[in-house]
Deep mutational scan, measured.
Amino acid sequence: MDVFMKGLSKAKEGVVAAAEKTKQGVAEAAGKTKEGVLYVGSKTKEGVVHGVATVAEKTKEQVTNVGGAVVTGVTAVAQKTVEGAGSIAAATGFVKKDQLGKNEEGAPQEGILEDMPVDPDNEAYEMPSEEGYQDYEPEA
């Protein structure tokens, strides 16, 4: 019985440690998101679009440190934060509304985080759909 109880105690310690790591990862992701939003706020009209992409990228980098179902929630929060940063930029006159959601080359930025393969159960990952990809044929 002692062996059984000791095993359960060790398992509990492992769960607590994993929860603490997840909590730490979420806190880091939130900190990076805040950094990115402050970065966007300090940019001029020309830099705002690039700044919004930076927020998304920093958040995406930190999301990889967070495991399990938390990833889905962090990704949703990050996307809403990026959308909010863009709205703030438009409201303050840093950028025109028609410039939001495009990178410096004018290509749409939507789907940055949505296409990231995420499995809350950590069982399997699927690649994003290939609808947006084109076949590449090298020139002879």
Rank of each mutant, 00 (worst) to 15 (best):
Ile88Phe: 07
Gly84Asp: 07
Lys23Leu: 06
Ala90Val: 13
Asn103Tyr: 06
Ser129Ile: 03
Gly84Lys: 07
Asp135Val: 06
Asp119Ile: 03
Glu20Tyr: 15
Gly31Cys: 09
Ala78Asp: 01
Asp119Ala: 02
Pro120Lys: 05
Ala107Phe: 13
Phe94Met: 08
Thr44Gln: 00
Ala91Leu: 11
Val16Leu: 05
Ala91Glu: 15
Tyr136Asp: 02
Glu104Cys: 02
Thr72Val: 07
Gly36Tyr: 15
Glu61Phe: 09
Thr81Trp: 15
Met127Leu: 13
Ser129Asn: 11
Tyr39Asn: 07
Val66Tyr: 14
Asp98Arg: 05
Lys60Phe: 03
Ala89Gln: 06
Lys102Val: 05
Glu28Ser: 05
Lys60Trp: 02
Asp121Arg: 13
Glu137Asn: 07
Val49Ile: 14
Gln134Ala: 12
Ile88Gly: 03
Val16Phe: 12
Gly31Tyr: 09
Asn122Pro: 05
Gly47Val: 03
Thr59Cys: 15
Pro128Asn: 10
Asn122Cys: 11
Glu130Tyr: 09
Lys23Trp: 12
Gly101Val: 11
Lys10Arg: 06
Ala78Ser: 06
Lys32Tyr: 15
Gly106His: 11
Met116Gln: 06
Lys12Glu: 01
Pro128Gly: 02
Val77Gly: 04
Ile112Leu: 14
Val37Arg: 00
Ala76Lys: 13
Met1Tyr: 00
Lys58Pro: 00
Ser42Tyr: 04
Thr33Glu: 00
Lys45Leu: 10
Ile88Met: 10
Gln24Asp: 06
Gly25Val: 02
Thr64His: 05
Asn122Trp: 02
Glu123Ala: 04
Glu35Gln: 07
Glu137Val: 13
Pro128Leu: 04
Ala89Pro: 05
Gly7Arg: 09
Ser87Thr: 00
Pro138Asn: 12
Pro120Cys: 10
Tyr39Arg: 00
Ala140Cys: 15
Leu100Ile: 12
Gly106Ile: 10
Gly7Asn: 13
Val3Thr: 01
Glu83Arg: 10
Thr75Lys: 14
Ala85Gln: 03
His50Gly: 04
His50Pro: 09
Phe4Asn: 00
Gly68Cys: 14
Asn65Pro: 02
Ala140Arg: 12
Val70Glu: 04
Met116Leu: 03
Gly67Asn: 01
Pro117Ile: 10
Gly106Thr: 11
Val3Lys: 03
Glu123Leu: 12
Ala30Phe: 07
Ala69Trp: 15
Val48Met: 12
Glu137Cys: 08
Ala140Ser: 13
Tyr136Phe: 14
Leu38Gly: 08
Gly67His: 14
Val49Gln: 15
Ser129Glu: 12
Tyr136Trp: 10
Asn103His: 14
Gly93Pro: 07
Ala140Lys: 14
Met5Arg: 02
Asp121Phe: 08
Lys60Ile: 13
Glu131Ser: 11
Gly73Asn: 10
Asp119Arg: 10
Gln134Cys: 13
Gln134Asn: 11
Lys58Ala: 11
Ala29Arg: 05
Glu110Lys: 02
Thr72His: 01
Phe4Pro: 00
Pro120Asp: 13
Pro108Trp: 03
Ala90Phe: 05
Gly51Asn: 06
Ala11Ile: 15
Gly51Arg: 06
Pro108Lys: 08
Leu8Glu: 00
Thr33Tyr: 07
Val118Leu: 11
Tyr136Cys: 12
Met116His: 14
Asn103Gly: 13
Glu28Leu: 11
Thr92Cys: 04
Pro108Met: 06
Ala30Met: 09
Lys21Gly: 00
Lys34Ile: 08
Val48Ile: 14
